[in-house]
């Protein structure tokens, strides 16, 4: 009897150890590949990384070439994407979670949103080409690119925002209603503030994925050579602000990389590695920010 039990326990422990080792192996495998990628990029691109590389225009001379327009383009496109996808995504999520009746229609909408999150990005590019570029006459502009990436981010933002809103205990809502608050007051003063951390994390993760997207931007006509910056947002004449840059042509980092990689000269491949390193650092910084926000919001809220 006790022998059987001992054997059983020993067997279970063995399996337990085995799974531990298997998990460790999987983790080591994933991390090794990531490290290899980082190290090769770092070794190749690190040599090119300098202040001049970040602040120069592309050039036929690999040593003089830089990524300034691509960096600025990437930042502006992401800005447009963030400004449009956050309000749209959060509002849609709030509606679906708080207002929408639980009917078959909402179920269909929910399934569709989940499906949209898995659609290949090039499909969004084709759709944007057929919607923004020609019928709406937005051209091959920063605005078009930003809106295209918004399409890409929206499903993810909605799904994550809904998850975050769902984690707010319903006791909080009921307490607010008990005090006579309307639905909107409850959402504005309680639900949204408590779920901000989760929502922002999701938004930033969605954006950091969109930052490296090339396919949809190629289809809408992202350019590979630009030696100027978009129009300045501030002007000397009234009204002193300008959104002209929204309609300017642009280049983005992944496109610049792609262009350099396809050159015959080895030195351009180094530049591509440098641009890749910058892109990776941007993604890393964004993910770090997401992590920090989550940490902050968890510390702030106690219920």
């Amino acid at each position: 009897m006790t022998q059987d039990m001992h054997r059983l326990i020993a067997g279970n422990k063995r399996r337990d150890r085995f799974f531990g080792w298997a998990g460790l192996a999987a983790m080591v495998f994933a991390v090794t590949i990531l490290l290899l990628l980082l190290v090769t990029l770092g070794l190749e691109g690190g040599r090119r990384l300098s202040w001049e590389f970040l602040t120069s225009y592309p050039s036929r001379v690999p040593e003089r070439a830089g990524i300034l327009p691509a960096c600025v383009g990437t930042v502006l496109v992401m800005l447009v994407t963030a400004v449009t996808s956050v309000p749209l995504g959060v509002a849609a999520a709030v509606y679906l979670e708080e207002y929408a009746p639980k009917s078959r229609v909402t179920a269909v909408i929910e399934i569709n949103i989940a499906n949209l999150a898995g659609v290949p990005s090039i499909v969004y590019g084709l759709m944007a080409l057929g919607l923004f570029v020609y019928p709406l006459h937005l051209g091959h502009s920063i605005l078009t690119a930003g809106l295209t990436l918004t399409l890409l981010c929206l499903p993810v933002v909605i799904i994550v925002a809904r998850e975050a809103i769902r984690t707010v205990p319903s006791g909080i809502r009921e307490a607010a209603y008990a005090l006579g608050a309307t639905k909107w007051q409850t959402i504005r003063d309680h639900v949204l503030p408590y779920s901000t951390g989760g929502i922002l994390t999701g938004v930033i993760i969605a954006l950091s994925r969109a930052v490296g997207e090339t396919a949809p931007l190629i289809t809408i006509g992202a350019l590979s050579f630009i030696a100027f910056l978009p129009s300045p947002p501030v002007t000397a004449t009234p009204p002193f602000l300008s959104v002209r840059w929204l309609f300017d042509p642009f280049a983005v980092l992944p496109m610049q990389m792609f262009n350099w990689i396809s050159r015959p000269q080895e030195a351009f491949h180094l530049n591509a590695a440098g641009a890749g390193l910058v892109l990776m650092l941007v993604t890393l910084a964004m993910n770090g920010l997401a992590y920090y926000i989550r940490y902050r919001s968890r510390r702030r809220i106690r219920w």
Partner: peptide, 25 residues
């Protein structure tokens, strides 16, 4: 592309800001 890029680079360095040239592939 590399030749056009070079030509644009030379031309723009003398006209920077006033004329914008975009090159696609």
């Amino acid at each position: 592309f590399p030749i056009t890029e070079a030509a644009v680079e030379e031309f723009q360095s003398s006209h920077r800001g006033r004329i914008r040239i975009t090159v696609g592939i």
